[in-house]
């Protein structure tokens, strides 16, 4: 039985009732198809009502669902071939970031993806999807190759955040992420980033500097985990639900804020309910943008990515002094 959330219980109860009636009907040979049909309609309405109006915190729960598809689930469905390449050549191979060369709609691409485990054992192996510096350095190594060989880069974001232990500090976690940001901003190849689950802070952003940012419908992408935000704001981690609403981090919020470019539809209730359907949607949307970006010149791609970043931020500006300054600026020094 799949992990069930509190808000899904009314649906589960109704479905259980339908199953019971069907069984009763079969056992006793009584025709109850009328009743079943009524209840099924009711269930469909209820699902539409519940899944169509998910609150931010409920989306967090879906994005963190233990059975939510991870990169390794999507890989065989998105790519005709995937050759995983390992290691940062400096310290180790990080298993919370996978990378390699793949064939996407017949075209070689470089793929970089964060990977969470699906059970405790795998999660320990993958450090719960929290990359260490060597993961980000592997990403830069492989993306530099993509630039060298003119391959588009596809990144997939799914992490609670970068690793936060002594080893990460010793090996320069901050620098590793910063280098990722700097490197990605300078490439002349198309970069498409997709948030497939959880986008946790700087650790996620490291793979988020794309020409295009896509988000799965029930994914979220935040400056801080809602639990940590609640702990800072209200000294109470149980208020994560309120923090989730305040942070405006759902896919829909990011689309509205102009940070995300398009949302990728998920089956009702979340990607885990139909992996193939989600992969198909994902494939189509990525392909659409890739076709478009491939028409641009290398310089234009790079410039577009810079301008996209450049435009993010909201503030007020009063004077024209700065414009004057900018026109003056080339003269005296």
């Amino acid at each position: 039985m799949a992990q069930l959330f509190e808000f899904e219980k009314p649906i589960a109860e109704l479905e259980l009732k339908i199953a019971e009636i069907q069984k009763f009907s079969a056992d006793k040979g009584i025709d109850l198809s009328q009743e079943v049909s009524t209840l099924e309609k009711k269930a469909a309405l209820l699902k539409k009502e519940i899944y169509g109006n998910l609150e931010p915190w409920q989306k967090v729960q879906i994005a963190r669902h233990s059975e939510r598809p991870n990169f390794y689930d999507y890989a065989p469905l998105l790519f005709e071939d995937f050759i995983e390449l390992k290691g940062d050549r400096l310290f180790a191979d990080d298993r919370s970031i996978a990378g390699g060369i793949a064939l996407f709609h017949g075209m070689p691409v470089t793929v970089i993806a964060q990977v969470k485990g699906k059970d405790t054992k795998e999660n320990i192996k993958r450090n719960f999807g929290m990359p260490h510096p060597e993961g980000y350095r592997k990403a830069v190594r492989l993306m530099d190759q993509a630039e060298k060989f003119g391959r588009p880069i596809l990144t997939f974001i799914d992490t609670p955040g970068a690793a936060c232990d002594l080893g990460a500090e010793e090996r320069g976690q901050g620098e590793a992420i910063a280098r990722c940001l700097l490197a990605t901003s300078g490439y002349h190849v198309p970069v498409i980033s997709t948030v497939i689950g959880e986008g946790g802070s700087g650790g996620a952003l490291a793979l988020g500097v794309g020409n295009v940012l896509l988000m799965l419908e029930n994914s979220f992408y935040s400056v801080i985990a809602p639990e940590s935000c609640a702990s800072i704001l209200w000294k109470d981690t149980t208020k994560a639900k309120e923090a989730a609403a305040a942070l405006k981090f759902t896919a829909q919020d990011l689309l509205r804020l102009g940070v995300a470019d398009e949302l990728v539809r998920e089956p009702q209730g979340g990607a885990h309910n139909n992996l193939h359907q989600t992969a198909e949607e994902l494939s189509q949307v990525i392909s659409k943008y890739l076709v478009r970006l491939r028409l641009e010149s290398p310089e234009a791609l790079r410039d577009q990515r810079y301008q996209k970043l450049r435009a993010i931020g909201v503030f007020q500006e009063t004077a024209d002094i700065n414009n004057m300054l900018d026109s003056d600026v080339s003269t005296e020094s």
């Binding site: 910063a178 940001l181 700097l182 490197a183 901003s185 300078g186 802070s201 700087g202 952003l205 988020g208 500097v209 992408y221 935040s222 400056v223 801080i224 935000c229 800072i232 942070l247 405006k248 981090f249 919020d253 990011l254 804020l257 940070v259 990515r305 810079y306 970043l309 450049r310 993010i312 931020g313 909201v314």
Partner: peptide, 22 residues
Amino acid sequence: GARMQEGILSLYQMAKTSAALG
């Protein structure tokens, strides 16, 4: 670090400043 109260907009200032340094 990044300012929590401006959410994702703060987060992307990291990318913006790094790109300018590039």
